[in-house]
């Protein structure tokens, strides 16, 4: 499990991979927050294309980043979300907070 960060002009892209659960969520959170603190982007993109499993720990991760981005006037976009992860996202009502693509 890990995360690869790419920074563009006003965007931070976090490419998540592997399994997201309570065990590995804190490390991912720290890496993303560090990149956001450094760049103050307008948009944070969380790319789930390589994520093979996610439970509600991932919802906490997304909601926490949504709060962070809201605090600096930015937004969160979720990209390449596999169907089994969309199911957890929708259960949590995440589609009300962030664009899920």
């Amino acid at each position: 499990m890990g995360v690869r960060i790419e920074k563009e002009e006003s965007t931070v892209k976090a490419f998540l991979n592997g399994e997201i659960d309570h065990h590995c969520a804190p490390e991912i959170r720290n890496e993303i927050d560090l990149a956001v603190d450094e760049s103050h982007p307008e948009t944070l993109v969380l790319d789930f294309g390589e994520v093979t499993f996610m439970d509600s720990s991932g919802i906490g991760l997304v909601m926490g980043r949504y709060q962070t981005m809201k605090g600096i006037g930015g937004r969160v976009t979720l990209e390449n979300t596999p169907s089994h992860i969309k199911k957890v996202m929708r259960l949590a009502g995440m589609d009300r907070f962030a664009n899920i693509l």
């Binding site: 959170r29 439970d55 509600s56 720990s57 906490g60 909601m63 949590a92």
Partner: peptide, 14 residues
């Protein structure tokens, strides 16, 4: 404080 969403049982039930 650990960013727990509080959705564990909701996920299990669903």
């Amino acid at each position: 404080e650990e960013e727990r969403a509080g959705l564990g049982f909701a996920v299990m039930e669903s």
